Structures are given as structure tokens and as C-alpha cells.
Simulated scan of single mutants.
Amino acid sequence: MEYLQIEKNASPYTVKYYLNDLETFNQFLMVEGIENLADVDYRLIRVFLTSLYDKKLSRRTVSRLISSMRSFYRFLEREDKVSSNPFLQVTLPKTTKPIPGFMYQEELGKLFEVNDMSDPLGQRNQALLETFYATGIRVSECQSLTLQDIDFTIGTMLIHGKGRKERYVPFGRFAEIALETYMNEGRNVLLKKSNVATNAVFLNAKGTPLTVRGMRLILTKMVEKASLTIHVHPHKLRHTFATHMLNEGADLRSVQELLGHESLSSTQIYTHVTKDHLKNVYMKAHPRANN
């Protein structure tokens, strides 16, 4: 845990999953009667994999478990607890990444029209929606936003991302107007309902920091008001941000940086969506696209 938290700078969620995976492997070793981690070989790992598939675990889960154990044995090698890493011989099962769902401009337009801008909660909801779409930040990142993180003079937010990594993300005029309206008016009204001082940007009806669950609920209610038949969650707005940016010509590296993705492969999933979009544009626009 110290290695993950201090040296790898892993998030609490990552540490939690690693420990869960280690416990799964430990339970397996106990059943097999293996007491020494150095006694684990390729044959035993194959038995371990079979036991995982017998539990009807998905390929994605199995892949994560193998990855966790590979990292664990790498750590054991470094600490001179084992002489080799048997998990290096195991091929990770191929996982199919689902193409992310996103919203069309028409659907988004309806969402932006449902909030009552004369009401403190309506101002908050509009600012929340504009922030999600303008920046593509994760819901946890939005929940942890403080007043000091927003710089209106240059139109950027300091985002505290996964693994304690920080990045600056710009926001546009619509988000600026919505945030200033809420922070100068609605937020002050909500703050008076609580005796607790807070720097959190988004507050609930009681004047205390809005939770991740609360943010999801707000979006669900907005969808109901807009009479939309789609399911909208914060991550769908993140997908929408990335897809729209690429559709309008943004390069992959820039979108990767804005999203806070560590590897480009995480961002590349959005190119599948944009390829479909480009194909539709081509088929409609090119004189010799159709017979």
C-alpha cells in the first residue's frame, strides 16, 4: 500500500482494487495449499485463470487481475522476495472497448434551456451543466472544484485529476457567464442556508458541498424536464465533449491533455465515433460517393 500510494501516486480507488485483486489471489493460493509466493509458476497461474473463468468473470476483470498480479510480482522482485515474475508469461485476454455514447447538439440544446435562471438552484444546475460540457472533466473532479481553482481572468480551471495529477483546462464564454451568475448570486443564497463555511463551488439545497450522487441526480432531473428519452450521466457529457472537439477538428493529443488521459490509447476510442461522423459527411457531400 505504501508503494502504491507514495511511489506510484495511485488514487484511493486504484489501491482498493489492487488490494481486492491480491485478496482474490491469496484465497486461491490458500485453496491450493501454496504458502510461498516464490512457488507460484506458470502452471499454477493457468489453474488460477481457469478458476476466474469458472466464476463467469468478464475478460476485462480477468485482465485487470492479471495486470494487478504482474505489478505485484514486479514489486516482489524489486524487494528480492522472488527471483522472477511468472505473470510475465501470461497474455492478457483481449477486451472489447465499447464505443462511448454521446449527445447530439440538438439534445444538448434542449438541456441548456430547462433551467430557471432566476432561481438559485436553476443557476447552479446551469453552471454545472456548462462546466461538464465546456471542460469534459470527470464527476469526481467537478465535485472537488473549489473557488480558488477557477480563474476568470484567463478562463481556466485547475483540475485535480486521478493519481493526484493536476492540469489546467480552459472554458468558454457560455460556461463563464453561467459560473459567474451562479457564484455571484445563487451560490451566496445557498451558502446562507448552512452555518458551515466551504470553498466548494457546487452546493446542494442545504448549502453544503454537492456530492457526486447529487450531481448525477441533477442531470437526470434535467433530462426529465427536457422530455428527452436518453440516459444522461456526467461521463456521457465527458464523452460528448471529446467527440465534439474531435469532430470540429481538434487534434488527438490536445484532447488527451484536456481529458487528463495518461495514454493516447484511452483517447483514441473517440476516433471511432468521429470516423462514423466523417463517413456520414462524406457520403452526403461527395458527388461520387453514391451510385
Rank of each mutant, 00 (worst) to 15 (best):
K16D: 11
H231P: 03
E7V: 10
F112G: 04
P234G: 00
I66N: 04
R74P: 12
M215A: 12
S140D: 05
V189F: 05
H261M: 11
Y182S: 02
V62L: 04
P93G: 02
H277Q: 09
T50R: 11
L37M: 13
Q89W: 07
G101E: 10
K81N: 02
I150V: 15
Y133S: 00
T198P: 15
D149N: 13
E166T: 15
G33M: 01
N115T: 13
D119G: 02
G260Y: 03
A10K: 00
I6Q: 06
T91Y: 08
R59Y: 09
D41A: 14
P170R: 08
K16C: 09
K225V: 01
L29F: 10
A242V: 10
L44K: 08
I177Q: 12
L147I: 15
N36T: 04
D54I: 08
A285S: 15
H286V: 12
N204E: 04
S118N: 12
A285H: 14
T95M: 06
V139Y: 07
A134G: 13
Q5Y: 10
V212A: 03
E7I: 07
N199I: 01
R213C: 09
E35C: 11
T24S: 04
R43Q: 13
F48Y: 12
L129G: 09
N26G: 05
E32C: 07
N115F: 11
S83G: 04
V139W: 03
K206I: 09
K284F: 06
V62K: 04
E32P: 08
E180S: 04
I150W: 05
T24N: 11
V255K: 05
L65T: 11
N291T: 09
P86A: 11
G163H: 06
L65M: 13
L246R: 07
E248R: 11
A178E: 03
V15T: 13
N125V: 05
V31M: 12
Q5I: 14
E130V: 14
C142N: 05
R164Q: 07
R46I: 10
L92K: 07
L129A: 04
A10M: 05
T50G: 06
F132K: 06
T146R: 08
N184K: 14
M1F: 06
N290H: 07
R216D: 03
F202E: 00
E32S: 12
T220H: 06
T146M: 01
H231S: 13
L29P: 03
H231I: 08
N26S: 13
E23G: 03
L219K: 00
M30Y: 03
F171L: 13
Y104L: 14
N290I: 07
N290A: 14
R213D: 01
